[in-house]
């Protein structure tokens, strides 16, 4: 039903304006992708120079502000937990029984050796709050029609000066995102695929992150299972929960 409305709405707006406004598209992406809370199991495959590793984890999150991740495999990472509250991040390692706050320059470290930094995970402000977006055209991508959006930072404390976003014009799922430096140099690209419908939302199950300045095949992020709007006990999002 929701999908129907979405499509219907899209149809209407498209019809009435020919091309939707950028903020409107972002709004719709938001509506499609975000939920009050979600629980998902995912795998992250990191292509190293020598081998590829896959790390699986289970994440509980509420909005963009709170997230709790527990690593399930490989055995070495099992039991490692990560808690994000607003702009703070803690990691608990069971072998040392220490909870360490990841702050300052440590945020710039890569997450588990991937092309993603902790900081990339931390910025939870809405794109519309930090960027001015304009639609610059439409392009076809993997057989889908997309709107191409250009976002320019309107605040100066974001990591990327501009972004480009390709959004599926029917499903309102981003299919590609590119992050740029102030100079206009492309820094990172994420490509989304395997778009499926889950509980009435369109969701890309696979995302490939790639640091464009670095050689390598990037990091592949896959959703194994996802559930939206579940009952989540509040205690999960406390530092005490890390040690349990």
């Amino acid at each position: 039903m929701k999908l129907f409305i979405t499509i219907l709405l899209t149809g209407i707006t498209t019809l009435s304006f020919g091309q939707p406004g950028a903020d409107e598209i972002l709004e719709k992406v938001d509506r499609n992708m975000s939920s009050e809370n979600r629980i998902f199991e995912s795998s992250m495959t990191i292509h190293g120079k020598r081998n590829s590793r896959t790390i699986t984890s289970k994440t509980y999150s509420v909005g963009d502000k709170k997230a709790f991740t527990e690593y399930l495999s490989p055995p070495r990472e099992q039991g490692t937990k990560m808690l994000k509250l607003e702009n703070q991040l803690w990691i608990y390692s069971p072998s040392t029984d220490r909870t360490i706050q990841i702050a300052g320059h440590m945020l710039r470290q890569s997450v588990m050796g991937s092309d993603l930094s902790y900081e990339d995970m931390m910025d939870d402000r809405k794109l519309t709050d930090t960027y001015n977006a304009v639609v610059v055209g439409s392009e076809e991508m993997s057989g889908r029609k997309t709107w191409k959006l250009e976002l320019k930072a309107k605040v100066d404390n974001v990591a990327y000066a501009s972004r480009k976003l390709w959004v599926d014009s029917e499903r309102f799922v981003p299919l590609r995102e590119e992050l740029y430096a102030k100079s206009g140099q492309l820094l990172k690209r994420s490509t989304m695929s395997d778009v499926v419908q889950i509980e009435g939302r369109w969701f890309p199950k696979t995302v490939v992150y790639k640091d464009m300045l670095k050689q390598g095949d990037g990091t592949e992020f896959k959703i194994i299972e996802i559930q939206f709007n579940q009952e989540l006990p509040e205690y999960i999002f406390s530092k005490a929960a890390l040690k349990r």
Binding site: V158, Y160, K182, L187, L213
Partner: peptide, 15 residues
């Protein structure tokens, strides 16, 4: 050679 740095606000830049 490409270098990447961050300005005083933490925004990435590369050139």
């Amino acid at each position: 050679v490409t270098i990447r740095w961050r300005d005083t606000n933490g925004m990435f830049d590369a050139a």
